[in-house]
Simulated assay, not measured.
Amino acid sequence: MHRLVAEFIGTFVLVFGGCGAAVLAAGIPDVGIGFLGVSLAFGLTVLVMVYTVGRISGGHFNPAVSLGLVLGRRLPAADLLPYVLAQVAGAVAAAGLLRVVAGGKPGFTVDNTQAGAFATNGYGDFSPEGYSLAAALVVEVVLTAIFLLVILGATDRRAPQQFAGIAIGLSLTLIHLISIPVTNTSVNPARSTGPALFVGGTPLTQLWLFWVAPLVGAAIAGLAYRFLAGSPGAADELAEAQPGVAD
């Protein structure tokens, strides 16, 4: 239960911090934080929460990460569903609280006909720059796979463990810098689910892509890292030593 609560809290902070930066601070004229600020917000929330609760749960905060770690032999398969449920619950709670805060500004509305409304993800007309379904699919699969490779490599016992959170946070920042114009950046099904539930409409009907693509990318990376890690026993040894991302 402690591990699930840690995943709930970490995912809550990720969504409230990252999506909150996008909804509350990105669009202010002249002083808004823009794409760079939102990218840093997502990366920083993961970085700080990995160091805060990673020792408890592994610091996944993302169903795709949990799947990749199962396939990379870092997380028991029996833990996957409870982790995913805790992560989605944290994301929905954060989006709900963010909706309350954002609604405190006079004139604020959630427009489900606008691309990126309330930090939602999308493709086609709901991509920030109008990118196609195919482009969105490719970028989400590839960037999630890269993210998982960074996580698996940075948390390998043979890597310097104290720097794992920094590598993971910076990689998520880089991922957002690349893909915000394409999909508003998901690489995390829980992060996509929270805002979409409060917007509805097309962002909700397009949510399937932001589950399928990150999970596919994570599966590719999880299996690939088992090959890259060397002998089959190396990954099993890691799984016995640490069930999650961070020790």
Score class of each variant (00 low, 15 high):
residue 14 L to H: 09
residue 59 G to K: 08
residue 42 F to G: 00
residue 120 T to D: 04
residue 113 T to C: 07
residue 43 G to Y: 12
residue 204 L to D: 01
residue 41 A to I: 10
residue 107 G to L: 05
residue 25 A to G: 02
residue 184 N to A: 14
residue 138 V to H: 04
residue 139 V to W: 07
residue 120 T to R: 09
residue 6 A to F: 11
residue 97 L to D: 09
residue 217 G to R: 12
residue 7 E to S: 01
residue 167 A to Y: 13
residue 3 R to C: 00
residue 142 V to W: 08
residue 56 I to F: 11
residue 42 F to M: 03
residue 117 A to P: 02
residue 161 Q to R: 15
residue 49 M to N: 06
residue 58 G to W: 04
residue 52 T to A: 15
residue 18 G to L: 08
residue 214 P to L: 15
residue 196 A to F: 02
residue 143 L to C: 13
residue 226 R to N: 15
residue 215 L to V: 12
residue 174 L to I: 14
residue 28 I to K: 09
residue 142 V to Q: 01
residue 178 I to L: 15
residue 81 L to H: 01
residue 80 L to N: 00
residue 189 P to A: 11
residue 162 Q to I: 00
residue 206 Q to W: 14
residue 183 T to K: 13
residue 240 E to F: 02
residue 224 A to W: 12
residue 238 L to I: 06
residue 51 Y to A: 01
residue 60 H to W: 11
residue 16 F to C: 00
residue 61 F to C: 03
residue 194 G to S: 09
residue 225 Y to I: 04
residue 228 L to S: 01
residue 125 D to Q: 15
residue 18 G to E: 08
residue 134 A to I: 10
residue 218 A to G: 11
residue 238 L to C: 01
residue 150 V to L: 13
residue 78 A to L: 14
residue 92 V to G: 02
residue 2 H to T: 09
residue 101 V to Y: 11
residue 174 L to D: 00
residue 134 A to E: 13
residue 31 V to L: 07
residue 58 G to D: 05
residue 165 G to Q: 08
residue 206 Q to M: 14
residue 133 L to R: 07
residue 141 V to P: 01
residue 55 R to W: 09
residue 220 I to S: 04
residue 108 F to T: 10
residue 69 L to N: 13
residue 146 I to T: 03
residue 141 V to F: 08
residue 204 L to N: 05
residue 247 D to K: 14
residue 213 A to F: 08
residue 75 L to H: 01
residue 157 R to N: 13
residue 73 R to C: 01
residue 60 H to E: 10
residue 13 V to F: 11
residue 206 Q to L: 14
residue 5 V to C: 05
residue 193 T to D: 00
residue 100 V to E: 14
residue 62 N to E: 09
residue 203 P to F: 12
residue 95 A to H: 04
residue 22 A to M: 08
residue 154 A to E: 11
residue 221 A to E: 06
residue 1 M to G: 12
residue 112 N to A: 15
residue 177 L to I: 02
residue 82 P to Y: 12
residue 50 V to R: 02
residue 134 A to M: 12
